[in-house]
Simulated assay, not measured.
Amino acid sequence: MVIRSTVLAAALIALVWAIAQPSLALERKVYDPAALAAEQAAGKSILVHVTAPWCPTCKAQKPILDKLTAEPDFKDFVVFDLDFDTGIAGLKALNARSQSTLIVFKGDKETGRSVGDTKAESIATLLRTAL
């Protein structure tokens, strides 16, 4: 009986702790020009990830971006995924010519971009330009 009560108490504590923790999973949004403009008008730190489902570099970037944007310094970033195959208007508007492009904004000001980068350190440096 004591063991069951202890296990139940531990499970309850774990559940309460999990609920109380801020979400570590960043919400990635599908690129939308109006949504981007709204976030820019609000002065947010923004990352646009030009990606394609067939792109191995994009696939390598995703877990790096997920990990970085879960860190306290970058947790407030708004991340938009712009599909390279279907987002032609967005690519033109942002002057993005390649998948695996990372474009960073602080409000409506572009602070940096990179193409094909899969190094966490240099991506973190890029994100810091919008803090």
Rank of each mutant, 00 (worst) to 15 (best):
S122H: 06
G43K: 09
T51C: 09
C55L: 05
L8C: 08
M1F: 07
T86S: 14
L15R: 11
K67R: 13
I123D: 01
L24T: 10
V50N: 02
T86L: 11
A124S: 11
T125N: 11
I64E: 03
D73Y: 01
L65R: 05
F105N: 01
S5Q: 10
P63A: 13
L94Y: 08
T101P: 00
A11S: 12
R113Q: 12
C58R: 00
A41L: 13
L26D: 04
C55I: 00
E39N: 09
L47F: 01
D81C: 12
T69A: 12
R28L: 14
L127E: 05
L36F: 04
R113H: 07
R113D: 04
W54G: 02
A25M: 08
I13R: 09
T111E: 14
P56R: 12
A52H: 02
I13G: 04
D81R: 08
G90W: 03
K59E: 06
L102M: 09
N95L: 11
G43H: 08
L91R: 10
L94G: 02
L94P: 00
L12N: 05
V115I: 15
V104I: 13
L127K: 07
L26H: 11
L68F: 06
T57W: 00
Q99D: 03
G112K: 08
Q61L: 09
T57L: 07
P53S: 15
S5V: 00
I19E: 00
A25Y: 04
S5A: 10
K92N: 09
V48N: 05
I88P: 00
P56N: 11
G107Y: 03
V7L: 15
K67V: 03
Q61A: 11
I19Q: 06
L12I: 15
D32R: 04
L68E: 02
V30A: 12
A9D: 05
S114I: 04
K62Q: 13
A120L: 09
G116M: 07
R97P: 00
L26V: 06
I19A: 13
A34W: 01
L94W: 10
A38F: 05
R97K: 13
P33C: 15
R97S: 11
A34R: 07
L65G: 00
K44A: 15
P63M: 15
G87R: 05
A60F: 01
K62S: 13
A18N: 11
M1G: 13
I123W: 06
Y31A: 09
L94R: 03
S45G: 07
L91P: 00
Q61G: 05
A14R: 09
F84C: 04
T118A: 14
T51F: 03
L47K: 03
R28E: 12
A37T: 10
I19L: 14
L15V: 15
P63D: 07
L68A: 04
L8S: 07
R113I: 02
L47A: 05
K109R: 14
K62L: 15
A124R: 13
A10T: 15
L131Y: 05
A93Y: 01
D76L: 12
A38C: 01
P22Q: 15
T69C: 12
G116C: 10
K59S: 10
A20P: 01
A38Q: 14
V79H: 10
V78S: 09
I3R: 12
L36T: 02
R97C: 01
A60G: 01
